[in-house]
Amino acid sequence: DHIPWITAVLPTVIICVMVFCLILWKW
């Protein structure tokens, strides 16, 4: 059976995008 890697990667991607947007917003 396949491991849904997207389910494991998606939260990390969302957190990175939120942090990236927060850094851009504070500049």
Rank of each mutant, 00 (worst) to 15 (best):
V17I: 06
W25S: 01
V17T: 06
D1S: 11
L24W: 04
F20C: 02
W5K: 14
M18L: 05
I3F: 03
V17R: 09
M18E: 14
T7I: 08
F20E: 14
H2R: 04
H2K: 13
A8F: 10
F20Y: 01
K26E: 06
T7R: 07
P11V: 00
T12P: 02
F20I: 10
K26I: 01
V13K: 13
I23Q: 12
V19P: 09
M18K: 03
L24N: 13
I3E: 09
P4R: 06
W25P: 02
A8E: 15
V19E: 01
T12M: 13
V9M: 08
W27G: 12
T7G: 04
P4T: 02
C16E: 15
P4G: 07
V17N: 15
I23F: 03
I14V: 07
H2L: 12
A8V: 15
W5S: 07
I15D: 13
L22Q: 06
A8N: 15
C16A: 04
I15M: 10
A8T: 08
H2E: 09
V13D: 02
W25Q: 15
V13G: 03
L22C: 08
C21M: 05
T12F: 14
L24H: 08
L22E: 06
F20Q: 02
M18T: 01
I15T: 07
V19Y: 04
T12W: 01
K26A: 02
T7P: 09
I14R: 09
I15V: 14
C16R: 11
H2G: 13
P4W: 08
T12V: 01
P4K: 08
W25E: 13
P11D: 00
T12C: 01
M18H: 07
D1V: 02
D1E: 05
L10S: 11
T7E: 14
I3N: 02
I3G: 12
L22V: 04
L24R: 10
L24C: 14
V17Y: 05
W25T: 08
I23M: 02
L22G: 10
K26F: 06
I3D: 15
L22T: 11
K26N: 02
C16V: 10
T7A: 09
D1C: 08
D1Q: 12
I6M: 11
L24F: 03
L24A: 07
T12Q: 12
I15N: 13
D1R: 07
P11I: 00
W5P: 03
I15S: 00
V17E: 09
P11H: 03
W5C: 08
C21S: 10
I3C: 14
F20K: 12
I14H: 02
M18A: 00
L10C: 04
W5D: 13
W27P: 02
H2S: 03
I3Y: 13
C21K: 12
H2A: 02
W25R: 08
H2N: 08
L24D: 14
C16M: 15
C21Q: 14
T12D: 15
I15G: 05
M18N: 13
V9A: 10
P4C: 09
K26R: 06
W27A: 10
V9E: 06
T7L: 07
H2Q: 05
I23G: 04
I15C: 01
V13T: 04
A8S: 02
L10H: 00
F20S: 02
P11W: 10
A8I: 13
I15F: 02
D1L: 05
F20P: 01
V19M: 15
T7F: 01
M18F: 12
W25G: 12
W27T: 03
T12A: 06
H2Y: 10
I14Q: 13
W5A: 06
C16G: 07
W25K: 11
D1N: 01
I3K: 12
